[in-house]
Design a binder for these strands. Sequence first.
DNA 1: GCTGTCACTCGATGATACCGAGTGCCAATT
DNA 2: AATTGGCACTCGGTATCATCGAGTGACAGC
Lengths: 340, 340
Amino acid sequence: MTVADPMTLDERKASILRAVVEQYIHTAQPVGSQHVARASGVNVSSATVRNDMAALEQEGYLQQPHTSAGRVPTEKGYRFFVDSLVGPARLGSADSKHVRSFFANVHGELEELLNDTSHLLADLTRYAAVVVGPPHEAALVRSVQFVSLSERIVLLVVVLSNGAIEKHTLELEAPIDDAVLSVATTELTRQMLGLSVSAASAVAAPSDSSAGRLVEAAKRALLGGQSADSDQVFIGGASQVAGAFDAVATVSEVLRILEQQYVVVSLISDVLDRGLSVAIGTETGIAPLADCAVVVAPYEVAGETAGSIGVLGPSRMDYPQALAAVAVVSQRLGRRLTEG
Amino acid sequence: MTVADPMTLDERKASILRAVVEQYIHTAQPVGSQHVARASGVNVSSATVRNDMAALEQEGYLQQPHTSAGRVPTEKGYRFFVDSLVGPARLGSADSKHVRSFFANVHGELEELLNDTSHLLADLTRYAAVVVGPPHEAALVRSVQFVSLSERIVLLVVVLSNGAIEKHTLELEAPIDDAVLSVATTELTRQMLGLSVSAASAVAAPSDSSAGRLVEAAKRALLGGQSADSDQVFIGGASQVAGAFDAVATVSEVLRILEQQYVVVSLISDVLDRGLSVAIGTETGIAPLADCAVVVAPYEVAGETAGSIGVLGPSRMDYPQALAAVAVVSQRLGRRLTEG
DNA sequence: GCTGTCACTCGATGATACCGAGTGCCAATT
DNA sequence: AATTGGCACTCGGTATCATCGAGTGACAGC
């Protein structure tokens, strides 16, 4: 009885494929039938393995760098491997301890915490790590204030309920009086307090007083800035990518992607939106990441999805380890932010 | 008559050395006597060049990768080359235009401006660029405010005269009343307004009221946070280092250094403190940067040194170009911040 | 003091051979 | 029918060797 469903693999072929992927992940060398025959759970001869491997190649799970070399997983091969993982492996005990002590000792502002978390994740996985902070949009305004910096420059400071601060400089046509600033602060507070920034600043309330004009300018600034820096991104361990690839050109390309934070953010949210936790090669939708994979997870604060974390490494990534690390860190981070 | 002063070079030897450095900078290949003889301003035969090059090697300006190869500059050779540059070369006209249009069009907050500037500098030089923001210490307090985030968490927001904001979360033992927050805000404003953060928060004014305790906690937080995030650093074009070195190990090391922002900041301020604008190889005092060089410059806001910018590249860097770029950008940035 | 010349060095390049890991195929075995 | 052992074959990697050429150092002559 042969395989009817092309999407399903023979149990033995699946084992062989898994063995190939595992081997390749930590040797980075094409793997041959003998190694698989010896290493994998299945007890068959290398000849049998060869036959199955030829079939797996036919079906697109493996590929040969050149005739008479071992096999290397294709994107499809990695995908199968990842999908066939049952539960996320547990983290090594040393790593677990590392994570626990990190979250026990960390202190400081939200930004610092998120930034340190990205480094933690990079340390754990040895890949580049990304931490996307909670979007400001959801948070509520706790305080609004105009502060005069110089005669014609006013700083608008908005404190949000999650501890984040938005600020905008406003340049005025004419010098403004402190008393007017104070009136404007009171008025804007009345309009925005307790609402989200976007909701509050969308409501126009034109007025011809100088304070009123200031209030409107502030709302325009808040709406304008919104799209640009709405999400905070922290990237840790970019230096790890230098070790993950051997072609210096690839390193350069990947680093360039990491520098474009908006690309990284949209990549991660795309992946999460598709309901995945792993995207491999072209699944990322970013051409220069053809040899890369990302592992992502959201984190929840007080039961609500607040942000996301992820790692970016080569497609021959240690998926079990990365999945475990990402899962643990996202969970701990969420817990920490919920309590904190 | 031979050279008496070992620090001074024959005019011809100097020309030859300069020619070697220039050649090497843009070919990355050991340069031979023939090329120098043909290219350099001096009109002598290759044999003469050979003799001088042998002498230059003796004196430590050049070195041979192996017998019967061309010469490569040593650190001392680069140093001579840099010191012998007269005025900073002017930027190419395309680059000049780029800089002008950048500063004409840029908008947004200080942080964004500095960050964008680091990318500008990286684009211009094709090396990694660093922009160090104005230290918060010098700025004066324009506004202080306690904002309640939740029952026992209070956010301290300090607005400084340069438009920067410092914030600190304070966790309280017991819930606190809004009225008390308001009193504390007033009191802290009275104590700090118009002073520098460090000066103002150093003065202890113990009090036993709950508002008083909050004020003291705030000052402790401000003093504590001071050392950590006193300077803001923006790094642009880290991906450029991948192209600048061929050994992937070097790339990795350099990136690791760039990730440690405090190292980068102290490197730059060290160099400036020593009155230099270029540090080459071991002059940086950082072992992994043995094959690197940095070019730095301070920028002035309203006549006062406010911060600094720099580029980090291989020791075979295009110094004239880098010096020109750094000079122009620092000057434009200073002007922009002075006007802005 | 410069130059032309010559012998020498040594990495880079290319041809050649060989080794070995790995494959595909097939006949034999279970 | 599936598995296995055996065998011929492929092909990258490594080692050896000769050659080439850019480059040097030295020295005699201008």
